[in-house]
């Protein structure tokens, strides 16, 4: 009887070990799959041409990704510039100043904002922002900025709450105003965490697809200002995959687009997560 129990315990352990390993391996499988699939393109063109050429003419076999990279950078940049100050101030307010009642209103709102699907943001963008700013990079940036707000705020709230209150007390007892304490002690103590949160938010913004696709205009040309239309990478994949796959190298090109996203986001994520783990550890005394 007892030996059966122990056998079951071992067997279950084995199965669970396998599942755990499998979840790690998914990351690797994805990387390998995407590389293999984009190999035909990578073999036929130098990487520099793929990344920096602005000629996107699949019918003629020209695959320059620069317009899409530029589009992605624009919308992500605008989104961060808009969202970071708002979320920093909101998070500071929620942690340092807000009363319990205010929090009990704002946190559910953030929940809702975080839960709303990309496509809903897209509809909102088309109905409310496009009439003001047109199908442009700016519109994409605004919509994306609102989308990453809840992620940024909740990460920052977590980071700020981890700062021991004794530090704030020490600073206050020297006669610092609350903002002085925050600026010089809390923000300083948490700066690696803030950086990690921003990197994480950037990587979220980089991969957003549907909402951006709906409001950006999708023009495969290099944009020169934020009032022009653009064509971010995820939108390229979503718009074209599944069609025209008979075209030589077209599938490989779209897979390469996915690979770029995967690699950049993977790097960003690993760095920021490792930093966040460290921050967490440092505070958990």
């Amino acid at each position: 009887m007892k030996s059966l129990c122990i056998f079951k315990d071992r067997a279950a352990g084995g199965v669970m070990f396998f599942l755990t390993i499998a979840s790690i391996l998914v990351v690797g499988a994805m990387a390998v799959g995407l590389v293999v699939k984009s190999m035909p393109l990578l073999e036929s063109r130098p990487l520099s041409e793929l990344l920096f050429s602005s000629e996107w003419k699949p019918l003629r076999g020209e695959f320059g990704f620069f317009p899409f990279l530029a589009g992605t950078l624009w919308v992500t940049g605008i989104a961060i510039v808009l969202a970071l100050p708002v979320s920093l101030l909101t998070a500071i307010y929620l942690v340092e100043y807000a009363r319990r009642r205010v929090k009990s209103y704002v946190f559910p709102m953030l929940d809702i904002l975080a839960g709303l699907p990309s496509v809903i943001y897209g509809v909102w963008g088309v109905l409310l922002i496009v009439p003001l700013a047109g199908y442009t990079l700016l519109t994409g940036g605004i919509v994306l900025g609102v989308m990453i707000l809840p992620l940024l705020v909740s990460l920052l709230v977590e980071i700020f709450s981890a700062v021991p209150s004794s530090l704030r007390d020490a600073s206050a007892s020297l006669g610092a105003t609350q903002w002085q304490s925050i600026k010089k002690v809390v923000l300083r103590k948490t700066s690696p965490g803030i950086l990690a949160a921003v990197v994480l938010a950037i990587s979220r913004a980089l991969g957003e697809t549907i909402a951006v696709l709906m409001v950006c205009g999708n023009l495969p040309e290099v944009p020169h200002s934020m009032m022009e239309a653009g064509y971010p990478l995820p939108a390229l994949i979503a718009n074209n995959y599944g069609e025209m796959l008979s075209l030589p190298l077209y599938e490989a090109a779209l897979m390469f687009a996915a690979l770029i996203l995967f690699v950049v986001i993977l790097l960003f994520n690993v760095t920021s997560r490792v930093i966040l783990y460290r921050v967490e550890k440092k505070f958990a005394l």
Binding site: L34, L266, N269
Partner: peptide, 12 residues
């Protein structure tokens, strides 16, 4: 990390 990978990449 998997949580951070965008769904378009999963889809593709």
């Amino acid at each position: 990390v998997l949580f951070g990978i965008p769904s378009i990449v999963y889809g593709a």
